[in-house]
């Protein structure tokens, strides 16, 4: 019957709309959890995952020593040509020439944070760091030298 269908339609429509309003009304009255982050304010409490891939970083220990042998595995593994290793030859007291890094150049502007260099490194010399506020005003600042000045390779790392 037409009239009955009509009234059922109106009833169903109203009911479905009220169901939706009940849900939003529930969230309006139960305002406890906030899904957004108050980002610049929560810098101190912000906790990123340990594995978060922010930028490539070369850890140095307290003696200013790193574990990079200058083998160029990372340079080969990098799909974007982000890493450039300029190597030199150290001469040991015994007169043996040993390959070492002069500069580990890392171009952040070309990096896509894929992590393949870290994967490829045989001596775990480079890691991904958690930092993510990497903007600078001058793009030249994005070309970084990862080995600290005066640093040298740790003893025993081959």
């Amino acid at each position: 019957m037409f009239l009955k269908d009509y009234i059922t339609d109106v009833y169903r429509a109203t009911k479905s709309l009220l169901t939706g309003m009940k849900l939003t009304g529930y969230y309006f009255t139960h305002h406890k959890e906030i899904i957004t982050e108050q980002y610049p304010d929560n810098r101190t409490t912000l906790k990123l995952a340990d594995r978060f891939k922010g930028e490539v970083w070369m850890p140095h220990d307290e003696n200013n020593e790193h574990a990079c042998t200058g083998c160029s595995s990372c340079e080969i593994a990098c799909p974007n040509g982000t890493i450039k290793i300029i190597s030199k030859f150290d001469v040991s007291p015994e007169g043996k020439r040993k390959k070492a890094i002069d500069q580990f150049v890392y171009r952040l502007d070309m990096c896509t944070m894929c992590g393949l260099c870290v994967e490829a490194c045989p001596t775990d010399a480079i890691k991904m760091r958690n930092t993510f506020e990497l903007s600078v005003f001058d793009r030249n600042n994005l070309i970084k030298r990862l080995n600290e000045p005066g640093s040298k390779i740790r003893e025993g790392v081959e």
Binding site: D50, K53, M113, E119, M128
Partner: peptide, 30 residues
């Protein structure tokens, strides 16, 4: 967001994870 956090913990990124390598995955899950 919860899924993204799981991804971030295990893969290190939220969208472009790059967790796959030929022959398996890149690392142990978190």
């Amino acid at each position: 967001e919860k899924i993204n956090e799981i991804m971030e913990e295990t893969c290190g990124a939220r969208l472009t994870m790059n967790y796959m390598v030929p022959g398996g995955v890149m690392a142990e899950p978190h």
